[in-house]
Nucleic acid binder design. Structure first.
Lengths: 210, 210
DNA sequence: GCAAAAGTGTTGTGTCTACACCCATGT
DNA sequence: ACATGGGTGTAGACACAACACTTTTGC
């Protein structure tokens, strides 16, 4: 049996992402990701949630566990990273840095942020995770801005609507948004049909026979 | 700072999968997954490889870290699970149990095996991981048997070949397999073009504009 | 010639992109 | 009327599933 005094520190870290002002932003605590050491009796996920407190994401999932013995030069420390997503209309306290303009972060925290963004970008395409970045109700062009900021490339509102409605991810609420001062047809309001994550694009190409 | 005598044990576990005799099998150490406690100076991945020794998988990737404080009733123990894949033509020592006929495993090891199988099934569809389950050279029907065992459903040899060749995942070696005693056209031999994992099905539906 | 196994041709379907066009509002 | 923003119609590209058909072998 290993000497219990010679065990690594274990921290849980959160990459909490939100789109605001047309930019994908990450929550920072100074030059660190929020998080801290795992306590007895809690899971990694509850540790992450404890450190986030009231800044509760609409979706949380595990990303990866980093174990390079030199990742923290001070001490032997493992880090389990989580991805958290916050709807665009919530204003939460804290330091929200654009992911494209990160300050220098401690240890491997910068790499962990990019891993979180990569996971989000992939899942926006084949799941309904968008629900965790969007307000409860929104127009297609508002949703489009969120997708553009998160994906980092242009998205056609026409096709975004059709893809998500065809898949049953979005449904119209029946409501409408008033036109702006400059006119234009009032936009229909939509919501996500489910606020539980699900795979909506069955990309499996080697499907079971019908 | 936390009292270092009050830190959890941390083990790395391996879900090593191989197709043999038309079945997907997992390497067991008795009623446990192979693995053991992380040592100072090593990463989780090197810990896994150390415990596997000569039984070296063609592909290794991290699965997930389990942290339920009661997962091991004896002691506070985190487990980071890895997926390893071994080509069908290698005969490695050890106890290889069919995944569909697992014995009762300790703690959450059974659930971890199923998580590994789920990861494999997903990645067989949109990456070239097949290389890690297949021999260096093979016929399409040999590859088909591997896919059938791993995916758990029928796969058409015709379409398997076309999908993988179209994507550039497979290439003909030029060689042929002799016909069996019972006749039949000799089968062409193929190899995987790359033995590095890569995403081959760009399922991203919200693609950047051309 | 016949059975067996491998491989190709072809048709149909579903999902996506792109772009033209139509709709509803404010000034 | 016309500008502005929202929404629909439609055609083309592509990848895949299914299945008929052809090729190459052993007996």
């Amino acid at each position: 049996m290993a000497d219990p005094t010679n065990r690594p520190r274990h921290v849980a870290l959160a990459v909490v992402l939100q789109v605001r002002d047309g930019r994908l932003r990450v929550l920072l605590d100074g030059n660190c990701l929020p998080g801290g050491e795992l306590r007895a009796g809690e899971t990694l996920e509850s540790c992450v949630r404890r450190h986030l407190g009231r800044r509760e994401p609409a979706h949380v999932e595990q990303l990866e566990t980093r174990s390079d013995p030199k990742r923290n030069p001070q001490t032997w420390e493992l880090a389990s990273a989580y991805l958290g997503l916050v709807p665009a209309d919530e204003t939460l306290p804290g330091d929200w840095s654009p992911v494209t303009r990160l300050p220098r972060l401690v240890h491997d925290h910068g790499a962990i942020v990019f891993a979180g963004r990569a996971r989000l970008r992939a899942k926006l395409s084949y799941t309904n995770v968008g629900f965790a970045l969007a307000p409860a109700e929104f127009t297609i062009s508002e949703l489009r801005e969120i997708y553009v900021a998160a994906l980092g490339h242009d998205v056609s509102a026409t096709n975004l609507q059709r893809v998500l409605v065809r898949r049953g991810v979005l449904e119209p609420t029946g409501g409408q948004r008033e036109s702006g001062r400059t006119g234009g047809r009032p936009a229909a309001l939509f919501r996500f049909s489910s606020r539980e994550i699900a795979i909506t694009d069955q990309f499996a190409v080697l499907r079971p026979p019908a």
